[in-house]
């Protein structure tokens, strides 16, 4: 299903349809995460990927044109690069342990350690929250700072756009 959605994103030319399809893609990957018992990740994917980013993409779409421009002639070099990268990634997964394998480093060192310490030290039922906010508090602070920076960046870019538009309109209205 994910592959079909991804392929139709490539083939479709209407940007509106593409945005909707990318929302579908996110929702499907959220289902995949639920299937792998990563409920928190699935929650985030559904809320951010399928919800907010679709709305923001539609907002961007309203600023630009509705359909893809340019000729769709096949370019060999990008295709080769994509296939190469994909092959390398798949080759990389060969070495990875199977899903849920009990003898991986993550399952033998960090995971049991956290699960053992959390009831004693933090006593919060949701281990994911405990790890994110307490043991990995620095990382989460960094993530918050990243979100903050991204927001500020977008605001600066977009407010620059607003000022330029206003100046353009002033120029038009000016006695010239």
């Amino acid at each position: 299903m994910l592959i079909i959605t991804a392929l139709s994103v490539v083939v479709t030319r209407s940007l509106f349809a593409i945005v909707t399809l990318s929302g579908v893609f996110s929702l499907l990957s959220a289902l995949l995460f639920i299937r792998m018992d990563a409920v928190d990740v699935a929650f985030t994917e559904a809320a951010v990927g399928a919800g907010i980013s679709t709305v923001l993409m539609l907002g961007t779409l309203a600023l630009t044109s509705r359909s893809e421009r340019g000729d769709k002639k096949t370019q060999v070099a990008p295709l080769f690069l994509v296939i190469l990268t994909g092959a390398l990634l798949i080759y990389g997964t060969v070495d990875m342990p199977h899903f849920g394998a009990p003898d991986t480093p993550a399952q033998t060192h960090v995971g049991p350690d956290y699960l053992e310490r959390i009831p004693k030290e933090i006593d919060v039922p949701n281990a994911v929250t405990a790890i994110l906010a307490s043991y990995r508090g620095y990382d989460t602070l960094g993530e918050t700072a990243v979100v903050f920076t991204a927001g500020i960046g977008v605001l600066m870019l977009m407010s620059g756009l607003a000022r330029r538009r206003r100046e353009d309109e002033d120029d038009k209205e000016g006695p010239s």
């Binding site: 923001l56 961007t60 600023l63 918050t144 903050f148 927001g151 977008v154 605001l155 407010s159 756009l161």
Partner: peptide
């Protein structure tokens, strides 16, 4: 922060859209 950033980005985009 996340609430603020998301709403701010939405405002920034929506303010320009005709």
């Amino acid at each position: 922060t996340v609430t603020g950033v998301m709403v701010a980005i939405y405002y920034a985009f929506a303010a320009h859209a005709p």
